[in-house]
Simulated scan of single mutants.
Amino acid sequence: MFLFCTAIPLHTTAPIEIIDVTMHIKDIFHQNRVQNGQITIYSAHSTAFVAINECESMLQQDMVTFLTQLVPQHQDFKHNRQPIDGRLNAHSHLLGLFMNASETIPIADGELLLGRWQSIFFIELDGPREERTLRIQIIGER
């Protein structure tokens, strides 16, 4: 059984930002030559998440608009009254209730089983941030 772990450092530049990390994930996958198993992509943050969806620029703009409208930033959230790190980010935590911290993708016959239109995204909800980390774990047979 083969096990590999690594991390991708990220820098975000917008309050809500959707970053396509598919090529990074595919590069890591191809370097490790796993034939059968799974790859897990994990965000170790409470205001940044992982999602699989279609990569199309207007759809991504729609996603940002939807998230911004779903939980508007400027409300009287109790969490914002005494922020731990000075960030008024209750809205980011609340949006996170609807997202995943990780995604797991099967690997079969040396192929990462993403659908034709599927891409892997890191979704920042509390940016900009200098340091974010996306963790990758591959487990399987070579």
Rank of each mutant, 00 (worst) to 15 (best):
Q31W: 08
R33C: 06
V34H: 03
N36A: 15
N36I: 12
I39P: 07
T40N: 07
I41E: 12
Y42R: 06
Y42D: 07
H45N: 09
H45P: 04
T47R: 01
F49P: 00
F49T: 04
V50T: 08
A51N: 05
I52A: 13
I52V: 15
I52D: 09
I52K: 08
N53Q: 14
C55L: 03
C55H: 15
M58T: 15
Q60M: 15
Q61D: 15
Q61C: 06
M63S: 09
V64R: 08
T65A: 12
F66A: 09
F66H: 09
T68N: 12
T68I: 12
Q69N: 14
Q69W: 06
L70E: 05
L70S: 10
V71P: 00
P72N: 07
P72A: 06
P72Y: 11
Q73S: 10
H74M: 01
H74D: 11
H74G: 02
H74N: 13
Q75Y: 02
D76Y: 02
D76A: 06
D76G: 02
F77Y: 15
K78H: 10
K78W: 11
H79Q: 09
H79W: 07
H79M: 06
H79K: 09
H79Y: 12
R81K: 14
R81S: 11
Q82L: 14
I84D: 02
I84F: 14
I84G: 00
D85M: 11
D85V: 13
G86P: 15
G86C: 09
L88I: 02
N89R: 04
N89Q: 03
S92Y: 01
L94G: 00
L94R: 10
L95W: 03
A101Y: 07
A101D: 05
E103S: 13
T104N: 12
I105G: 10
I105M: 08
I105A: 13
P106Y: 04
P106K: 07
A108S: 14
D109W: 00
E111V: 13
L112N: 08
L112S: 13
